[in-house]
Design a protein around this nucleic acid. Structure first.
Length: 883
RNA sequence: GCCGGGAUGGCGGAAUGGCAUACGCAGGCGACUUAAAAUCGCUCGCCUUAAUCGGCAUGCGGGUUCGAGUCCCGCUCCCGGCACCA
């Protein structure tokens, strides 16, 4: 065998062998337990980056491990191939999005193959392929028919100059990223999916994932869904006479409903706040002398809401409508205000204001001199409305609340609600923060929404047999002048499927989160034609047993997928008994980070320029400068590698210099999967050195062990040889536990390094010694193969092995090898280690304690003191407490 | 502001309530070499010491325990998410 470890030679050799022999395809042995392992599929941006290397290395180690443990493993890969970057490339470089995307896929596929990832490439899918998205269109039509999909007006970022809709990330500082024009909010008819219908179930489902999904992710989803318990309370409008109007038109039967989580504070209501968009906002002031003022204010606030969506919580502004409603329990008059901070799309768009016990209401009351009425008293203090400097929002005892005085606030919530129900003035209810999912995008490179707009029949779904609605490829993409699809006459002009008259096709496309909401289903039967999945295969494989991806998808992708899966089941696209949670176990891996280099642009102080590491160099005095001009660059924090910050390391450089195995081992060893990895070249060299040492170990020992068989538990071993055997089996135990139970490749690699060190240090002489070394090295290679598959297969072959270790059984633990006759036990006195004694492993507590006391050092410490307590933790430690 | 997560040598990190600092990186010393690289061996928390002995150390302050990096209470700082959600 070669003197030197040469990954450039052995890696392509094994990649070819694996491909030729179909080593990665799914096993046909149906008796084996299934294991569906999936990593979040990549967007084909052009090149893979270190984050991908990390994500896919973690997945591959687990996939290979599971296979070797005898599981029937499904480990597929594909491409999240629709999306905006393809359109940007078209605009900037004049390349067609399809061509750009498929080129990128080809490049990235080669890069992934260089890492030796064990994907079943025969199942590869790209979501931009009509054979994929046609099924998504079918599901959408079913949703539309069941009312799960609907259309309504919503605001979108709009650039007048480019005549196009912009995504949030294309809006920089409120301006269009391309032309710098001010972005406005334009109301357009948009498509929504009724995620809120599943809000309750999506929330409850999170509990079933306890211990299997990270708590952090479950908590984020919980907050996103945002369920609040409370009451809906109805405040009737006060009757007034407006000349020319029916007295009852704005009173009596009319009312304002509010949602509150604090019905216990109902008696503290001093005014009512409604959203500027509230249907009653303008109507209330109509015909009064305040009408003009109110209208102007409401319009101004509505405009503000449109321009700065989700802007900072700040100033509280409002206007009195001049009208009142009636407090449902006290009957007193409550002034109705329009307030800028009330959201129309949460609750009822109206809020009962209790300034004494709500921070926002307090600020508003202070700004407009409205009364503050304390109705909850904390224990041991007496609050007075006029003296309050901040709202009191904690629990307390109800006061100034009629029959409820003295009732604790928590109990009061229930009691007040009961009274409202009894008097038919309100009801107990819940409210969700979760909004329906806006899925339409006014973009070209996406899945067409399969409906037709007909003047006679309105919205008509495309008949299933006419699917797919294929995205036309003969378009020119300019980035201005609206949706490119709208300009393709052959696409737009259709006949109505219902009445046969001329109609227009929908030109919006889906949000790309739609494709990623069900790709894991499709992987079970990627070539099935009649439906999204073939039910028997779906039943066989679903759910995904182990899902690995970045934390950045904690809410959106993972929530949408959980929704879509339930919809697929309920609509009959998946068998009824399909588990409703699509991902049984989730591992969120940390980011790969590196410092970045930047400067402020000379022509625009708001614009930052970023430089690739190779454009800079470190001067002798430690200052980093730009090679081009020799001047200093700003050295930024260690942040996530990204194209925009240009702080990327191309995996091909690492693979080219050190090989794919090294890239994998470095990424896996650097940190536990959840942690962040800061890139250092030093770490890469360390990983490479480890593989080189393994290579040399095999090379050096091969002459001695080539013709012996691995040790088989016969014969007396020397102490040193028994030690090596113990190390071997201890390593089997550790690596199996680290991969199978803890999913921690980093500590497993540390264990392998220790085993290698132990074998290297052992110079065997007898036949038994060689047999033990052989067993150790074979075990090392088998255990190493999930991490560094090429070099492990190559070395195993030199040892006389056949085929790939991926099909080799995982090593079996020999408990007897772990056995030790004696153990060294530390002896503590009052918590400090004062001596170490060697005792028989199974010695009784009495014997060990006697031995400890007999120890010279311990005896000296004990003399003249009273022994208060003596504890022996078997095999671990002796603790003596003296006074 | 609210909700999560974290803090261990020069660095990345390890440690079912039981010997803190495994494994690796960087550093120091040595061997091999004409020399260097590579490789191999030794060393490597801090203070004290000639060396031992000893003392101090897991962000800070308390507590539970024979025993706490780990469990509990109160802080500080860092990271992430949400952000007028009634």
């Amino acid at each position: 065998m070669d003197e030197r470890y040469n990954p450039a030679e052995i890696e392509p050799k094994w990649q070819k062998r694996w491909a030729d022999s179909g080593a990665f395809s799914v096993s046909e042995d149906k008796s084996a337990e299934k294991f569906y392992l999936l990593e979040m599929f990549p967007y084909p941006s052009g090149r893979i980056h270190m984050g991908h290397v990390r994500n896919y290395s973690i997945g591959d180690v687990l996939a290979r491990h599971m296979r070797m443990r005898g599981k029937r493993v499904l480990h597929p890969i594909g491409w999240d191939a629709f999306g905006m970057p393809a359109e940007n490339a078209a605009i900037e470089r004049g390349r067609h999005p399809a061509e750009w995307t498929y080129d990128n896929i080809a490049q990235m596929r080669e890069q992934l193959k260089k890492l030796g990832l064990s994907y079943d490439w025969s199942r590869e899918i790209a979501t931009c392929d009509p054979s994929y998205y046609r099924h998504e269109q079918a599901v959408f039509i079913a949703m539309l028919e069941r009312g799960l999909a609907y259309r309504k007006h919503a605001l979108a970022n709009w650039c007048d100059h480019c005549a196009t809709v912009l995504a949030n990330e294309q809006v920089e500082d409120g301006k269009c990223w391309r032309c710098g024009n001010v972005v406005v909010q334009k109301a357009m008819a948009q498509w929504f999916l009724r995620v809120t219908q599943y809000a309750e179930e999506l929330l409850a489902g999170l509990d079933t994932l306890a211990g299997r999904w990270p708590d952090e992710v479950r908590e984020m989803q919980r907050n996103w869904i945002g369920k609040s318990f409370g009451a809906e309370v109805r405040f009737p409008l006060e009757a007034i006479d407006i000349p020319g109007k029916q007295p009852s038109a704005l009173s009596g039967e009319r009312e304002i409903a509010v949602f509150t989580t604090r019905p216990d504070t109902l008696y503290g209501v001093t005014f009512m706040s409604i959203a500027a968009e509230h249907p009653l906002a303008l109507e209330l002031a109509q015909g009064t002398e305040r009408e003009a003022e109110v209208r102007a204010f409401a319009e101004k606030i509505q405009l503000e809401h449109k321009v700065k969506k989700g802007a900072d919580a700040g100033d509280k502004r409002g206007v009195f409508t001049g009208r009142y409603c009636i407090h449902p329990l006290t009957g007193s008059k409550v002034p109705i205000w329009i307030a800028n901070f009330v959201l129309m799309d949460y609750g009822t768009g109206a809020v009962m204001a209790v300034p004494a016990h709500d921070e926002r209401d307090f600020e508003f009351a202070k700004a407009y001199g409205l009364p503050v009425q304390v109705v909850i008293q904390p224990a041991g203090r007496a609050l007075a409305g006029a003296q309050l400097t901040a709202a009191y929002t904690d629990p307390g005892v109800m006061t100034n609340s009629g029959v409820f005085d003295g009732v604790p606030s928590e109990e009061g919530k229930r009691k007040v609600t009961e009274k409202l129900v009894a008097e038919n003035k309100g009801r107990a209810t819940t409210s969700f923060r979760l909004r329906d999912w806006l899925v339409s995008r006014q973009r070209y490179w996406g899945c067409p929404i399969p409906v037709v707009h007909c003047e006679t029949d309105g919205i008509v779904p495309v008949p299933t047999q006419d699917l797919p609605v294929a995205l036309p490829l003969d378009v020119t993409i300019t980035g201005v002048g609206g949706s490119p699809l709208a300009k393709v006459d052959s696409f737009v002009n259709v006949t109505c499927p219902k009445c046969g008259r001329p109609a227009r096709r929908e030109t919006d496309t889906f949000d790309t989160f739609v494709e990623s909401s069900w790709y894991y289903d499709r992987f079970t039967t990627p070539r099935h034609e009649g439906a999204p999945v073939e039910p028997n295969e779906a039943r066989e494989w679903l759910p995904v047993d182990f899902y690995i991806g970045g934390k950045e998808h904690a809410v959106m992708h993972l929530l949408y997928a959980r929704f879509w899966q339930r919809a697929m089941i309920d609509l009959g696209f998946l068998p009824k008994d399909t588990p409703r949670e699509p991902f049984s176990r989730l591992l969120t891996q940390g980011m790969v980070c590196k410092e970045f280099y930047s400067r402020t642009a000379e022509d625009n102080p708001a614009h930052k320029l970023y430089f690739y590491p190779e454009e800079t160099e470190l001067r002798d005095d430690g200052v980093r400068v730009l090679k081009a001009d020799g001047n200093e660059v700003f050295v930024g924090n260690v942040v996530k590698m990204s194209k925009t910050k240009r702080n990327i390391v191309d995996p091909d450089e690492i693979i080219g210099e050190y090989g794919g195995d090294t890239a994998r081992v470095f990424m896996l060893f650097a940190a536990p999967p959840e942690g962040q990895v800061d890139w250092t070249t030093a770490g890469v060299e360390g990983a490479h050195r480890f593989l080189q040492r393994v290579w040399r170990l095999v090379r050096d020992r091969l002459p001695q062990i080539a013709s012996v068989a691995a040790y088989k538990s016969v014969g007396e071993l020397s102490l040193a040889a028994a030690e090596v055997r113990r190390a071997t089996h201890r390593t089997i135990q550790r690596v199996t536990f680290d991969l199978g139970e803890r999913y921690q490749p980093n500590t497993a690699i540390a264990a392998l390094m220790e085993l290698m060190n132990a074998i290297s240090a052992f110079k065997g002489e007898t036949a038994d010694d060689h047999a033990v070394v052989r067993e150790g090295i074979e075990t090392l290679l088998v255990l190493l193969s999930p991490f560094a598959p090429h070099v492990a297969d190559e070395l195993f072959e030199h040892m006389g092995g056949k085929g790939t270790l991926l099909h080799h059984a995982w090593p079996k633990l020999d408990e007897s090898a772990l056995h030790e006759a004696t153990v060294e036990v530390p002896v503590q006195i009052n918590g400090k280690v004062r001596a170490r004694i060697t005792v028989a492993k199974d010695a009784s507590e009495e014997v060990v304690l006697a031995a400890a006391k007999a120890n010279e050092r311990i005896a000296a410490e004990l003399s003249g003191k009273t022994l208060k307590k003596a504890i022996y933790v078997a095999g671990k430690i002796v603790t003596l407490v003296i006074g």
